[in-house]
């Protein structure tokens, strides 16, 4: 059986001064291979924690995680991660960064350089092959990060606010790129974002999480990702259902934030 099954996942952080934070409680999602899911939620609702568990950096305190029939117990090349920023290796050139995964596997040089060249072309950085990564702009760096992840040919790609640090224009271009790569490669992708529009655009499926304890509040199946592939994203945003969903979800998150603020005010 293929796909990623997140089964009743819970995560409790015991705090050093006593007490505990229930970062996740009974989170269950089944993702078929090739599905694109975005995750939205107010700050501190456990999105990063969820992603870290799926990546294998954290072991959950309850529940389990099954990918393609085997249980996930640690980080592995089958699950690639794209971080918000600063996870590139600045001591390596763009080429070496993208070729990192293949190098670790011991891929022959000729084959590796073919993979790297191809991916750099896909993300439009073929002219920057020998540049140092710190000589690139933020958007270019994220494209390198994407290419680096893809070079390893993972089954699942995990992205934690990959476009969060970019300006609006670059961000829109990158959104198109993510959609294009998703369609072309058929990867399973989980993408965390703080932007409701981005979540709507980059999610066949969208889950909205609620905080304390972190849990799934609402799930959607959306047509916009399909529509957006190789199309103008601004046109997609004009779709009447898009605006409707956006208002609905914004209201939902707004209410959650209100509730959090109210609770902290009540405690103070």
């Amino acid at each position: 059986m293929t796909g990623l099954s997140i089964d009743n996942l819970s995560m409790r952080f015991d705090l050093p001064g006593g007490g505990a934070v229930q970062a996740l409680q009974n989170v269950s999602v089944d993702l078929k291979a090739g599905e694109l899911m975005s995750v939205l939620g107010p700050s501190g609702c456990g999105k990063t924690t969820l992603l870290n568990i799926v990546a294998g950096f954290l072991a959950p305190t309850g529940g389990k995680l099954v990918l393609n029939g085997h249980q996930v117990t640690g980080p592995d090349a089958e699950r690639g991660m794209v971080f918000q920023q600063g996870a590139l290796f600045e001591w390596m050139s763009v080429r070496e960064n993208v070729g990192f995964g293949p190098s670790m596997k011991g891929m022959p040089t000729a084959e590796k350089s073919q993979v790297v060249d191809h991916l750099l072309e896909v993300v439009g950085l073929q002219d920057f092959k020998e540049k140092a990564v710190y000589e690139l702009s933020g958007g270019m760096q994220q494209r390198v990060a994407l290419a680096r992840c893809l070079a390893n040919d993972p089954d699942v790609i995990l992205m934690d606010e990959p476009l969060g640090a970019l300006d609006a224009l670059t961000r829109e271009k990158m959104q198109s790129l993510v959609l294009k790569l998703w369609k072309e490669t058929g990867k399973t992708i989980i993408l965390i974002t703080h932007s409701v529009e981005e979540a709507l655009l980059l999610g066949e499926r969208l889950i909205v999480m609620a905080p304390r304890p972190g849990r799934i509040h609402k799930e959607y199946r959306l047509p916009f990702a399909e529509m957006g592939v190789n199309a103008d994203l601004r046109e997609v945003k004009k779709h009447p259902e898009f605006a409707e969903r956006r208002e609905e979800i914004l209201g939902m998150i707004w209410d959650m934030e209100e509730e959090i603020m109210g609770r902290t005010e009540g405690a103070a």
Partner: peptide
């Protein structure tokens, strides 16, 4: 940065490779 180490692990690096290609140059 922990994200660099995490990135290297999920790119399939072994402990030794993390040492050689991430920790030492960093």
């Amino acid at each position: 940065k922990i994200s660099k180490v995490h990135a290297a692990y999920s790119l399939g690096a072994s402990k030794w490779q993390i040492m050689r290609y991430v920790i030492i140059p960093n």
